[in-house]
């Protein structure tokens, strides 16, 4: 299951007019801070092999991972913001002959974002071409290997809650709202740092260097917002996401058994209070258990419930 730990919570954020994002922990414009708490329920349902063909998990297995994600974003300057997100992970795996329940801290993410706009980019009507300019965010994320990886003193793979690698990501996010419609595109490109390895699953081995392959992730979403008479909002969003990781290198030699791809679709229902200070979200992310929708990666369903509070 270790390859599953590339997750990013889909319930981050405020996702309101003025920016904010449904896919990243990004503050809305003019707000000072945000706290976000979400819970992921990820259920494994087979996997894609390296040739893209889908295969079921062994009969009698029930594989799940739950994650509690705590996020905090803070405005540093009118155009700059920073955030931290920290997951706590529970692995619950049952096979025909045994079951294992383990838990531990996941990998921590530190992000910084630059907003390439000065005022709210959401409009009710397009009156001039400038009204079509989206809110653009540029960001960088550092993933810290605070989770438990296969390179720690673990018994086996069921204890793993992190990848054990530092990663630097460059992020971009385009968000445009012309009420009641919204479209978002996000992409990030991540590079893992090479690290020495001298232990695998608790057993010391001859040291070597490992570097996972570069990771590319993109997402495109469209949403519709309904306002109640009290100006609370209910937003429905459909998204398509693509994730790819290149082949790893071991002592500089390509590992042809690594690398992966995953395509998934998700649906989100979000409620925001009339002042947009509270947002509650429910997301279902689904990966198709069919040939050709991924490679060398588990097929999962993720249900995420989350709430975020914006501090103005």
């Amino acid at each position: 299951m270790s390859t599953a730990f590339g997750f990013s919570s889909s319930a981050w954020a405020a996702s309101c007019c003025g920016g904010g994002s449904a896919s990243s922990l990004v503050l809305p414009k003019f707000s000072q801070a945000m706290v976000d708490v979400s819970l992921d329920f990820e259920s494994y349902d087979g996997f894609w092999k390296g040739d893209g063909s889908w295969s079921p998990d062994p009969a009698g297995s029930d594989l799940n991972q739950y994650r509690l994600n705590l996020g905090y974003a803070y405005r540093l300057a009118p155009r700059w913001q920073a955030s931290v997100s920290l997951p706590y992970v529970w692995n619950k795996n049952e096979y025909a002959s045994f079951s294992r329940n383990t838990d531990g801290l996941g990998d921590t993410k530190l992000s910084i974002w630059y907003e390439q706009f000065d005022k709210v980019a959401c409009v009710w009507k397009v009156k001039k071409w400038q009204d079509l300019i989206p809110a653009i965010y540029w960001g960088g994320t550092l993933t810290l290997p605070t989770g438990t990886s296969q390179y720690d003193g673990v018994d086996d793979n069921f204890d793993i809650t992190g990848l054990g690698m530092y990663r630097l990501d460059a992020n971009v996010l385009f968000d445009k709202t012309v009420y009641p419609w919204n479209a978002t595109f996000s992409a990030n490109y991540g590079k893992y740092l090479e690290r020495p390895v001298n232990r695998e699953y608790g057993t010391y081995v001859e040291p070597y260097d490992k570097q996972r392959g570069d990771r590319f992730n993109s997402s495109l979403s469209f949403g519709y917002t309904h306002f109640t008479e009290e100006m609370q909002s209910i937003t429905g969003t459909l998204a398509y996401a693509y994730l790819q990781e290149d082949e790893a290198r071991i002592d500089g030699v390509v590992d042809t058994t690594s690398g992966m791809q995953k395509r998934s679709a998700s649906a989100t229902l979000a409620w925001a209070s009339e002042d947009r200070n509270w947002v509650a979200k429910l997301t279902w992310s689904h990966a198709l258990d069919r040939d050709g929708w991924g490679e060398n990666f588990p097929t999962t369903d993720v249900v995420t419930v989350g709430v975020s509070h914006v501090l103005r």
Binding site: Y88, L105, T146, Y151, D152, P196, N198, R199
Partner: peptide
């Protein structure tokens, strides 16, 4: 969360020592 993770991983400072 931090206190629950007693063995706060050696991945933050990985070693190349042959042990």
């Amino acid at each position: 969360m931090l206190s629950a993770c007693g063995d706060l991983t050696e991945d933050l400072s990985p070693s190349s020592d042959d042990k």
